[in-house]
Computed example of a mutant assay.
Amino acid sequence: MRRLSPAAQEDLRLRVVAALESGRVRTYVQAAEVFGVSERSVGTWWRAVRAEGGRAVLAAPRESRAGKGELIGESARGAVLRAMRDYTPTDIGQSGVLWTRASV
């Protein structure tokens, strides 16, 4: 299922839940076979809908994650990028003429 877009994933979850609610499929196993998903996923979606309602299986907007090891904030990042644009490493006392991860 991870190969599907978030909208397609949401649609699939809604179709599985609708099939269970209508009685077209009677068990998690049957739903998993019909829709080509795991039995565990069917159970997770069904329990979420029963506990929280239909919004539980809707696609949530993804939040951007901070990159691994980001040590500076947005304003400091801007200052570093401006310095990289305007200067070379040798201009600020470092060795080399190209910016590298280590020199930044």
Rank of each mutant, 00 (worst) to 15 (best):
V57D: 04
E74M: 03
F35D: 05
W46C: 12
D11N: 07
S22D: 03
A18P: 10
S41W: 13
E10V: 00
A56G: 00
P61K: 11
V57I: 15
V29Y: 10
E39G: 07
G36C: 05
V49W: 02
A48M: 04
V29L: 10
R85G: 07
S75L: 03
V37Q: 12
G67Q: 11
R24K: 11
W45Y: 01
M84T: 06
V16S: 07
E33C: 05
S38I: 00
V49I: 01
W46P: 07
M84K: 14
V37F: 13
A31N: 01
Y28C: 02
G43K: 07
V37T: 13
K68S: 14
A66L: 13
S75R: 06
E63G: 06
A48T: 01
G43C: 07
E33H: 09
R85F: 06
E10F: 00
V42A: 02
A59L: 02
S22I: 00
V57P: 08
R65L: 08
A60K: 10
L20M: 11
V34G: 02
A51C: 09
I72L: 12
A32N: 00
R50K: 15
E74C: 01
V57K: 08
T27S: 13
R24W: 03
R62M: 04
V29H: 10
A60N: 01
G43F: 10
A56W: 01
R40Y: 09
L14R: 15
R62I: 04
L58I: 07
R15K: 15
D11L: 12
E33I: 06
S22K: 01
R62C: 03
E10M: 00
E70Y: 13
S41Q: 12
E33L: 09
R85V: 05
A31I: 02
A31Y: 01
V42Q: 05
I72Y: 12
V25W: 00
L58R: 15
